[in-house]
Design a protein around this nucleic acid. Sequence first.
DNA 1: TTTCTCGGACGATCAACACC
DNA 2: GTGTTGATCGTCCGAGAAAG
Length: 260
Amino acid sequence: MASADDANSLEDDPEEPPRPLTVYTFQSPSLYPVLKSPESPPQLNMFSYSSKDFAPQAARAKRRQVKNACVHCQKACKKCDDARPCLRCVKYGVAEECVDSPRKERKKGVKRGPYKKRDGKGSSVDPYDGSSNDASVQSNNNKRMGSPSPPVYFPIGYPSPVYYPQQPQALESTSEPPVLYSSPQQILPHIHAQPDSTLPDSYHPQPYYQAAPIYPLLHQPHYIMAPAQQQQHNYPVLVGATFPKHNSFEYQPEMVHQQG
DNA sequence: TTTCTCGGACGATCAACACC
DNA sequence: GTGTTGATCGTCCGAGAAAG
Ligand SMILES: [Zn+2]
Ligand SMILES: [Zn+2]
């Protein structure tokens, strides 16, 4: 079966077709809930799929990746998120070791030989021709137009790794059916797991809000919030979380708070 | 049964190349 | 200068192995 960390293409985009019947349960200290297939699964279309099984010829969903996984996730080949510490590290109790993995510099000066001609003058393949086997085609489909697509709100049920400097923007227009998004109330603040002094350089607490991981109600983690008097912002401060079943994960960092 | 490992598919990036 | 191509590098899915 899938590993505990698996089955969690949680952040995937709304364009993705529904994955058949699966339910999240927290049953391991692994970062992400496990997908189970209950006998009478609810009809929830909240999960992405990532395999070819559902690939409708044309609209093949894309897997979304974080820009830089943390060292632990990278090593484990597991899904990371943009938060630092990332959810997985928090869950494993190694939040203080959660730092971006180093990236190596891209080679330069590599010669490539002539490209295919543009504009049908040559033997170039139609990038939208579904019959193409050219591996590069699929990558071309999503990266045209330079800059990365703007952040989008994640649909309910999708834990999101993304930070939003402020209110999320409107979805980029798409021909896909509309999706539901978290209400502002569902956006939790960034996890402040460590005092500033122990945080990695890459960690810059700011009034950023993270679209919180939103799990199906049945298996939602119990978020531990700082007492009101400890909060100096007008948003709640998350200090830890416990996950139902197996209690194996309980994270309660000492304190929690950031200067405004 | 649950958790861990890791091969490899796929996504993101960006320098080389092509065209105007 | 701008846009396109395609190689490189990174992420993480998911199957199988290992452990309990
Ligand atoms: Zn991580
Ligand atoms: Zn981490």
